[in-house]
């Protein structure tokens, strides 16, 4: 049984997300946990989540224009969007990603 407070999401197009974190900092861990929770409400295969540790790939920070940590980049569907923070506000994250919610 899924917890009730996690809405069931439908992503029409495949959702491509990249989460940039900085090592195992508390904020990073919290962000990973929160994003996984949100994604668990998505139908499998409808999304792709990549978690990248900036400490291991520092060159990506400049390439991907990362300033804040944690940062979640929605690559697809367009428009591109960047969410920063620990994603504790689930509704804001879902709204920010533009995912319709199935009742």
């Amino acid at each position: 049984m899924k917890k009730k407070n996690i809405p069931v999401l439908i992503a029409d197009d495949k959702l491509v997300l990249q989460l940039y974190v900085s090592g195992m900092s508390p904020k990073s861990m919290e962000a990973i946990g929160n994003i996984k929770k949100i994604c668990s409400g998505l139908v499998e295969d409808s999304f792709k989540l990549e978690i990248i540790d900036l400490y291991k790939h520092p060159e990506l920070a400049s390439e991907q224009q990362i300033v804040f940590s944690p940062s979640l980049i929605k690559r697809l569907p367009l428009p591109k969007k960047t969410l920063v923070g620990t994603f504790s506000d689930t509704e804001k994250v879902i709204r920010g990603l533009g995912i319709p919610i199935k009742e």
């Binding site: 919290e30 900036l54 920070a61 990362i66 804040f68 940590s69 920063v84 923070g85 506000d89 804001k92």
Partner: peptide, 14 residues
């Protein structure tokens, strides 16, 4: 979009 706490670690790393 700001969704919770964050820091400038990305800038530091860069």
């Amino acid at each position: 979009e700001e969704t919770g706490e964050y820091d400038l670690e990305g800038l530091f790393i860069r």
